[in-house]
Design a protein around this nucleic acid. Structure first.
Length: 585
RNA sequence: GGACCUGUGGUGCAGUUUGGAGUGCACGCCGGCCUGUCAAGCCGGAGGUCGCGGGUUCAAAUCCCGUCAGGUCCGCCA
């Protein structure tokens, strides 16, 4: 039906008779003897010259027949990849008419995202999204190639799965054959891939769709794609190697440049220096520890387990109103307050707190922070975790940049804590999941000081975005029992919640470890996009709606009947008034 | 569950602060003219429940209340 693609024509094609197919991007008529048609397909645009008038209007689907020729002197278009040539003496055959598009099929016009999503098939015609889709395909191909090369086997796992009682809220699929029962869509293939290890698959990967019924964000959709990885007879080092290889390959394909080896930080270091477990290494502004400086302080505001500081270069000119706003922000983030010091000449400090500082404290503050005249020092004194995370957030808000701006700075964050916080009953909560292997050096602390136990869990971070996480799994029953005990999970409860996995492990579980890379986020960063919606063909809105299909939509009564379901009428929330129908209050 | 921003012909905006006739701009659309344009140009034209509902007022795009939709974020996402 066609001989060439629009975007590929160059001077080398001059003289070729061609037939092109595509959409009319623009039409410029100059009377009855001359018209130009810019023809577009996925590869690009080319100008076609018609010796007459043209029936086809914008977005009509046409086939154009003509001969490639060099453009006349002075009419080349440097803005077009094909701008040195044109297709001359064209005849245009209309393959399909089209309504005028709801918005211009052109990257240069900004259109409300709701309008774009309602007409996604038109939006996707635009070069930017075409490029994003193809970049995504190239990245996924690179990831697959890297895993294949490293001896991994891609295995598909079920979408209709059983509930896992931890983690994200799951999508429920009612069963037609078993009324009152349902499947759930997997929040990840986590359990399936561990079963594949028991099954002797040895090295598994999958470009897997994951589904989580949690609130959406710029970097979160209900359904998203992971490069899911698991391998047997390997440890943390091996996994970091496998995943690095795949991600660096993808980076090379996407950016044309292969990044160097990915550096590492321990979780504790990341918290200490950046106040987050997903540090953005593109800029400095590291947190400094002032705990010792103010160890014996008489300043009440600094009497806390940890005192942390953040230096804003040249920040002394920041107006008071902005400092008040930052203080307000620090409080909103959980700090008791925020102290600030404008650094002047010769160590003078401009701050409401300055007159309360001892001389050695003033000197220590300047020495430890290495703040220079003209800088601003922000200080939070609080519990260690609070002081770090609050300043870490302020660091991003003061010095941060869009995630996709170069350079790309990858980092492995390792040695995550095994537990994170306590539940209502006072039991530690699993930081990753309950099958995460404790750090071998900390096993002895499991019973007496569980919150101090590190785990063999690790994250991959790029420019402050979490790209993925993984862990070495527990394959030994004795260690698993100790972890369950630490979590306050009884044998009976463990059997009830994870029975089939624990049963499978008794069939002979190899030591194994794994990881999962968030493909949408990775591609979005490579594509220079701030939202993963721009690299997903048919994304949903923040409220989970598909504006094109109208999903979710009401279920027909006959369908409900077949599934054995009945809709419950939920009475509207009343403001203190009593409702006629009884409730369980 | 909560905070904030946005909603005006098909698209993007201005108008809202300080109420006074749907007023305006650009693009697109329709018709006409035009033999080298390229986001063509020139002339003419059509196209609007100002998201929706209620209230205040002689009068509401504009003020108030509610609600819906889209976005950003908090909670949530082991």
């Amino acid at each position: 039906m066609r001989t060439h693609l629009c975007g590929e024509l160059r001077e080398a094609h001059v003289g070729s008779a061609v037939r092109l197919c595509g959409w009319v991007a623009r039409r410029r008529e100059h009377g009855e003897h001359l018209a130009f048609v810019d023809l577009r397909d996925h590869s690009g645009l080319v100008q076609c010259v018609v010796p007459g008038t043209v029936e086809a209007r914008s977005e009509y689907v046409v086939a154009v027949t003509g001969v490639v020729r060099a453009r006349p002197e002075g009419t080349a278009n440097a803005d077009l990849a094909t701008g040195a040539v044109e297709v001359g003496d064209c005849t245009v055959e209309v393959l399909a008419e089209a309504d005028p598009p709801p918005f211009a099929v052109d990257d240069r016009v900004d259109v409300d995202e709701a309008v774009r999503l309602r007409h996604r098939y038109v939006d996707l015609r635009r070069p930017r999204l075409q490029a994003n889709l193809r970049l995504r395909a190239a990245v996924v191909r690179a990831l697959r190639n890297a895993m294949d090369r490293q001896g991994f086997c891609e295995v598909e796992t079920p979408l209709l799965w059983a509930p896992t009682p931890e983690g994200a809220r799951e999508f429920v699929v009612p069963s037609r054959l078993h009324h009152g029962s349902s499947y759930v869509l997997p929040q990840s293939p986590q359990l399936a891939k561990q079963l594949l290890m028991v099954a002797g698959v040895d090295r598994y990967y999958q470009v897997a769709r994951c589904l989580r019924d949690e609130d959406l964000r710029a970097d979160r959709q209900f359904e998203f794609t992971q490069l899911d990885v698991e391998a047997s007879f390997v440890g943390q080092e091996d996994v970091l190697g496998f995943v690095s290889e795949a991600v660096l390959d993808a980076a090379e394909v996407a950016t044309g440049e292969r990044p160097g080896a990915i550096p590492r930080l321990t979780w504790a270091e990341a918290m200490d220096r950046y106040g987050t477990d997903k540090p953005d290494l593109r800029f400095g502004m590291e947190l400094v520890d002032l705990t010792r400086t103010f160890a014996g302080t008489s300043v009440k505001a600094f009497a806390a387990p940890t005192v942390k500081g953040l230096v804003v270069d040249g920040g002394a000119t920041v107006p008071r109103s902005r400092l008040d706003a930052l203080t307000e922000r620090a409080r909103a983030l959980g700090a008791k307050g925020l102290a600030w010091f404008r650094v002047g000449e010769e160590g003078m400090l401009d701050s409401p707190l300055d007159r309360f500082l001892a001389e050695d404290e003033r000197r220590g503050l300047l020495e430890v922070t290495a703040a220079a005249p003209g800088d601003l020092v922000l200080v939070v004194a609080d519990e260690h975790r609070v002081a770090c995370t609050v300043l870490g957030q302020l660091r991003l808000e003061v010095g941060g940049r869009p995630v996709h701006e170069g350079p790309y700075r990858y980092v492995w964050v390792v040695d995550f804590p095994l537990f994170d916080g306590l539940d209502d009953a006072g039991n530690p909560l699993a930081a990753h999941h309950p099958f995460t292997m404790p750090h071998p050096d900390d096993l002895h602390l499991l019973e007496d000081d569980p919150l101090a136990v590190r785990s063999q869990a690790y994250d991959l971070v790029l420019n402050g975005w979490e790209l993925g996480s993984g862990s070495v799994r527990i394959h030994r029953g004795d260690i698993q029992s100790r972890v369950f005990t630490a979590l306050g999970i009884s044998d009976e409860e463990a059997t009830a919640r994870f029975g089939f996995l624990l049963g499978a492990f008794r069939a002979g579980a190899p030591p194994h470890a794994g990881f999962a890379v968030g493909v949408d986020r990775l591609v979005a960063i490579f594509a220079g996009e701030e939202s993963i919606r721009e690299v997903i063909a048919f994304p949903k809105t923040q409220s989970g709606a598909d504006l094109m299909t109208g999903a979710p939509s009401p279920v027909a009564p006959a369908v409900l009947t077949e599934l054995g379901l009945a809709l419950q009428q939920v009475p509207p929330a009343s403001a203190g008034g009593s409702t006629a129908t009884g409730g369980d209050r």
